[in-house]
Simulated assay, not measured.
Amino acid sequence: MILITVGTEKFPFNRLMRWVDLLLQHDLIGEEEVVVQYGTCTVLPGGARVYRLLKEQDFQDLVRRARLVIAHCGEGTVLLLDSMDTPFLLVPRSQRYQEHVDDHQLELAQALASIGVPIAWGPADLVRFLAEPSKVSIGDLSVAAARAVCHRLEQLFPAGSPSPQPLLPPPLTR
């Protein structure tokens, strides 16, 4: 079972729902059950079992049972998923698409990607990770990796500087 959660934000994450719908339409997920907690999304993937909101215990039970969790890149969600023993893939929300108030999820995703945490920048990344999910624990990072994340965040937010410009995902490579 694949669990997809977009959180409960007031901003819909329809871009991710469209990606999942595309994968389901083209049979790129196969026969595996897809469960979606969609929050405020107005686009829902056909063929998925959907819930607007799940109780915390029900959500954690689904995470434990899932082969893979695909989630937004919110700090709380990242910490929760990292504490559980299920492979996860993060998809950052963007202000550019009216999915969040700012681009801090993009910034966090870039910092996490620099230390090997799986991030999906587009539907092709979802397909790749579905084929070969891997469990990366942020808690098991070496001191050097933790310093690399801190260094990356310092580059994004230098002391005394104005708000950083929104970051865009890296271009897709072929």
Rank of each mutant, 00 (worst) to 15 (best):
D85C: 02
S134C: 13
G122V: 03
F129D: 06
T77V: 09
V91N: 04
L54S: 11
R93W: 02
T173P: 03
A66R: 03
R52N: 06
V78L: 09
A144N: 04
W19D: 06
T40C: 12
P118I: 00
I4T: 03
F129N: 04
V117F: 02
V127W: 08
I138W: 12
R65H: 09
E107R: 15
V50H: 05
E32A: 14
M1K: 11
A145G: 07
E107Y: 03
D82V: 07
P12T: 12
T8Q: 15
V136C: 03
P171V: 07
P158D: 04
R15I: 07
H26P: 00
L168H: 13
L24Y: 10
V34K: 07
A144I: 03
S137W: 01
D82H: 08
S114K: 03
L81T: 00
L130G: 09
F11Q: 11
R64I: 13
V143S: 14
P133Q: 08
A124I: 13
L79N: 01
H104K: 06
I70V: 15
H151P: 01
C150D: 14
L153F: 10
E56Q: 15
W121Q: 03
R52H: 05
L141G: 02
A71W: 02
Q165M: 11
V6Q: 12
E9K: 14
C41Y: 02
Q57W: 01
D58Q: 14
A145F: 02
V91K: 11
S161E: 12
T77P: 06
R65K: 15
Q57L: 14
G76E: 10
L141K: 11
Q98I: 01
R152L: 08
D103L: 08
P169M: 01
V91W: 07
A159R: 13
V91A: 01
P12F: 12
L167S: 11
V43H: 06
G139V: 04
L89Y: 00
Q57T: 15
V78P: 12
F129P: 07
E132V: 11
L16D: 09
A159E: 15
K135M: 13
D58L: 05
E56M: 14
F11K: 09
T5K: 10
L16V: 02
L112K: 04
A113F: 00
V136A: 04
L28F: 00
P158S: 12
V34Y: 05
